[in-house]
Design a protein around this nucleic acid. Structure first.
Length: 413
RNA sequence: GUGGCCAUAGCUCAAUGGUAGAGCUCCAGAUUGUGGUUCUGGCUGUUGCGGGUUCGAGUCCCGUUGGCCACCCCA
């Protein structure tokens, strides 16, 4: 058994994971994003500095053999900000980078939440305009749409922290108290109105007025208009109840949910215009924004949808299947068979054959179980071989020298 | 970190306190030159672990570990 909250990926599960990753990559590249990666282990301080003790509590951290406090990455953004702070001069702005890191957190596992998961991480760095916000949100939408989901399945709820900080400034709330009030607003959906009112005190009345009237801002209206121009407006709605837990967000924030409300957030992200500046020690000031989409909740959502599930399973099955199986009907033909196997593999076909002597029915059974389309029989026909199409059951005997040509014709459609 | 439910073969699950079973998977054969169907046979269990009650515990009690779920928190 793997450790609590960790997963083994047996071949079928690994093939499904590959399916999700390849869809993510394909969509990110469609948007002009390039892939990067970083270390799984980072200095503990990288997370402590910006996140505070509350998050350190769930960090997977330890002291390494050199006495250094280190932590398995709980998210990708600090690593990205660290890399960008050091290397941004090498790149023309804006940067559009993505990664598919495995991230870790130490806590009790539950539905949609383990101690490790993989996430698609996409970030735009060095662009302050709201066009970047809309571009990133579009990518997030497409990264879900690509699995066969539509606007009736999920929605991205978009908010703006500046909307709230301006409100708090107008209410003359001291800046030290902002973070705490934002957290209360973030939780207001999950808690009773009484409790929220109590925590907000004198701010309760104006805050609830905003929440009930559906507050918005010019920036948010602009993002929705932008998405409308892309034909994606149905996938988005302004919702100022979204605040997000992380302290480093500075502007636009958003989360993606399934419409039925059966799952946790599928993805979340926002603007963090100060983070690169902080991590570079003031050397590089770059506006930035990004989002992360985890494989666990998305996977649950795919498995709960018949169409999406079938698509994933079909793809995963094809990922594991071979194309050709060499049946060795006479043991004296083994060397002739492995010679042909090697030639076919050199041509790029996925080919397998029995590693030990076994009777013919079993070899055909194996060919079929491995998903082979063709079985090539090496036996009494030699120097000819029998090529059987396992789908149509049609079989024909051809000369050995015609094999490569015959196979490429048979498998070309 | 807190709480609820659960724990029997590789998987899904049976077994009024009375000698641990079935289906599927896997392996072999029926069929020594042809897969998907069928039939036959075979393998695997300290019933998660440790105590206790009892003539006797998979079953009841306590502890423990693990899983699932919810809370906390949310990257």
């Amino acid at each position: 058994m793997p450790l609590t909250g960790f997963r083994d990926f047996l071949p079928a599960a690994c093939a499904e994971r590959n399916y999700i990753f390849s869809k993510w990559r394909e969509v990110a590249r469609r948007y002009g994003f390039v892939e990067f990666d970083g270390p799984v282990l980072e200095e503990l301080d990288l997370y402590k500095k910006k996140s505070g003790d509350e998050i350190v509590r769930q960090l997977y951290d330890f002291i390494d053999k050199g006495g250094r406090p280190v932590a398995l990455r709980p998210e990708m953004t600090p690593t990205l900000a660290r890399i960008v702070a050091a290397h941004h001069r090498d790149f023309r702005k804006p940067l559009k980078w993505f990664s598919i890191p495995q991230v870790f957190r130490y806590e009790r596992p539950q539905k949609g939440r383990l101690r490790e998961h993989f996430q698609l991480n996409c970030d735009i760095i060095g662009e302050a305009s709201a066009e970047a916000d809309a571009e990133l949100i579009s990518l997030a939408i497409d990264a879900v749409r690509t699995f066969g989901f539509s606007a009736k399945d999920f929605v991205v709820r978009i908010s703006d922290r500046e909307f709230w900080t301006e409100f708090l400034r107008s209410e003359r709330v001291p800046e030290e108290g902002w973070e705490q009030i934002l957290q209360v607003i973030d939780k207001s959906e999950r808690e009773s109105r009484e409790k929220t009112c109590e925590r907000l005190g004198t701010l309760a009345e104006p805050v609830f007025e905003i929440l009930e009237k559906g507050g918005h801002s010019e920036k948010l209206d602009g993002i929705i208009e932008n998405l409308r121009a892309r034909g994606l407006a149905d996938y988005a709605s302004v919702d100022v109840r979204i605040v997000r837990g992380l302290a480093y967000y500075t502007g636009t924030v958003f989360e993606i949910f399934d419409r039925a409300g059966k799952f946790r957030a599928i993805a979340g992200g926002g603007r963090y215009d100060q983070l690169v500046l902080q991590l570079s020690g003031g050397a590089a000031s770059l506006p930035a924004l990004g989002f992360a989409m985890g494989d666990v909740v998305l996977g649950e959502m795919i498995r709960a949808n018949t169409g999406a599930k079938t698509q994933m399973e079909t793809d995963a099955k094809g990922d594991q299947a071979i194309q050709i199986f060499a049946v060795i009907a006479k043991s004296e033909r083994r060397n002739d068979a492995i010679g042909a196997v090697q030639e076919l593999r050199d041509r790029g076909w996925r080919v397998d054959y029995p590693l030990s002597a076994m009777n013919i029915p079993k070899q055909f059974h194996m060919a079929q179980a491995r998903g082979a389309r063709l079985a090539i029989l090496f036996g009494d026909e030699w120097p000819q071989v029998a090529v059987k199409d396992l789908l149509s059951s049609e079989q024909q005997v051809i000369g050995r020298e015609q094999l490569l040509e015959h196979v490429s014709r048979a498998l070309s459609f």
